[in-house]
């Protein structure tokens, strides 16, 4: 009987000690915020487009950490999805939305059609549209994330999403991708 008592007391003491250690550790080594969410957020393209169903990239990152699917980010494309899947240790899944979003686009406002309603300004998640009421608006192309959010609210449909073209500086040096143009109708050299 006393043996049992000793065992119970000992185990109880042990449990207390470990509990104290755990409690101490929980307080002492508490990590502020969610580091995993930070990592996921760093992978997301920060378009803040909301196509994932969350209001911005950060909420989606937190949702992923909370167990949401990794394939809800069309702007990030397959590459981003795979990276997140790798980070989260889950199987990559095909993107939920269409893959046409792969091409990077920026918004462009046809300025003579703009009525200056400021609706797109309010919609832009990154404040990349300048203008004021009754004044024409324009998109700061550099800051535009191509999220599409301004297209829908426009009452006169004067916003286009234009694919970003390559210039000499951003050319990717893929020689095989150069279209070989035939200019035979002109005199041969």
């Amino acid at each position: 009987m006393s043996g049992i008592m000793i065992a119970v007391i000992l185990l109880g003491l042990l449990a207390l000690v470990f509990g104290a250690i755990l409690g101490f550790a929980a307080v002492k080594f508490k990590v502020e915020g969610n580091p995993l969410a930070d990592q996921v957020e760093a992978l997301l393209p920060q378009t803040q487009c909301g196509q994932c169903g969350y209001p911005g990239c950060r909420p989606y990152a937190e949702a992923i950490v909370g167990g949401d699917k990794v394939n809800k980010c069309p702007p990030g494309g397959v590459a981003t999805m795979e990276k997140i899947a790798e980070l989260m240790g889950v199987e990559p899944e095909p993107l939920s939305a269409t893959t046409e979003q792969q091409v990077k686009k920026v918004a462009y406002i046809r300025e003579d059609e703009c009525i200056g309603c400021t609706k797109c300004i309010q919609a832009c998640p990154v404040d990349a549209i300048v203008g004021a009421g009754k004044l024409m608006h324009t998109v700061i192309a550099q800051d535009c994330t191509g999220c599409d959010l301004c297209v829908e609210p426009c009452p006169v449909d004067c916003i286009d999403m234009i694919p970003v073209t390559q210039d000499l500086r951003s050319w990717n040096w893929k020689l095989s991708a150069i279209p070989v143009t035939q200019l035979e109708e002109e005199k041969p050299c």
Binding site: E41, L44, P45, Q46, T47, Q48, G56, C57, P125, V126, D127, A128, Q142, D143, T145, S170, W171, N172, W173
Partner: peptide, 20 residues
């Protein structure tokens, strides 16, 4: 070119985040 492009994207994403 890809590294340059990635760096540019990263910079843009960072900027977008800050602006957001």
């Amino acid at each position: 070119a890809a590294i340059r492009h990635d760096a540019e994207e990263k910079r843009k994403a960072e900027r977008a985040k800050v602006r957001f």
